[in-house]
């Protein structure tokens, strides 16, 4: 067995690549923790991994989706995209749809992602394959980032108006807001590209 300490946060592609590299080296995921991954040895390249963002879904919908994936013979792990150590196990997800706006423990609190494992068949492992579905999926990711950007910049504006000068806090949160807009824009670009493609092919 092998234990690795990593935290990828919102870098879903990086996490997916890392897990696939581990599988190439002969390590299969058996357990996920907040910042840990437990592996056991397997044949190199025996498994493939895909990360799926599910935080916008309600706990009920997310469980149904998980059951569907498991029926296909995939193994599904929960993974957190945030590090929450608060005592109150409740979180508001403004980007969620319907009951997906509230996450609790027990429930989908700290389970923003699925890590999906599939036996390698030599073909690329993608959960989203059609242009319109890809564009929809990236919309949920963009919205999650966009909400963060809007909240940070609103806070910055309010602090600035309230205090009347640019404080260290304003600068720090301003920079954070700008940093968070990078993934927002990146996902927006993907959405646009797939939407355009969906108009002419599919």
């Amino acid at each position: 067995m092998k234990k690795c300490y990593r935290f990828f946060g919102g870098f879903l592609d990086t996490q997916e690549n890392w897990l696939n590299q581990m599988a190439q080296k002969g390590y299969r995921l058996i357990k996920t923790g907040k910042m840990t991954y437990d592996f056991e040895e397997c044949q190199p390249g025996e498994y493939q991994y895909a990360i799926e963002f599910v935080a916008q879904q309600s706990f009920k919908k997310e469980r149904e989706y998980r059951a569907f994936l498991e029926e296909l013979g995939y193994k599904v792990f929960y993974k957190n995209a945030n590090l929450n150590f608060s005592a109150i196990k409740l979180r508001w997800r403004p980007y969620g749809s319907g009951m997906g706006q509230i996450s609790t423990k027990p429930g989908n609190y700290n389970k923003e992602l699925f890590i999906v494992e599939k036996r390698n068949t030599g073909k690329p492992f993608e959960l989203h394959t059609t242009n319109s579905d890809k564009s929809n999926y990236y919309k949920s990711l963009r919205n999650a980032w966009l909400v963060t950007v809007v909240m940070l910049l609103t806070f910055v504006a309010w602090q600035f108006i309230d205090k009347g000068f640019i404080s260290k806090g304003v600068i720090a949160f301003g920079i954070l807001g700008i940093l968070c807009s990078i993934p927002t824009i990146r996902y927006q670009k993907r959405i646009s590209a797939y939407s355009v493609r969906a108009n002419i092919e599919e």
Partner: peptide, 14 residues
């Protein structure tokens, strides 16, 4: 013949 591969997420939505 493998030209069209349907991902699980897309299939689920459909």
């Amino acid at each position: 013949q493998g030209r069209l591969i349907l991902g699980a997420g897309s299939l689920y939505g459909a």
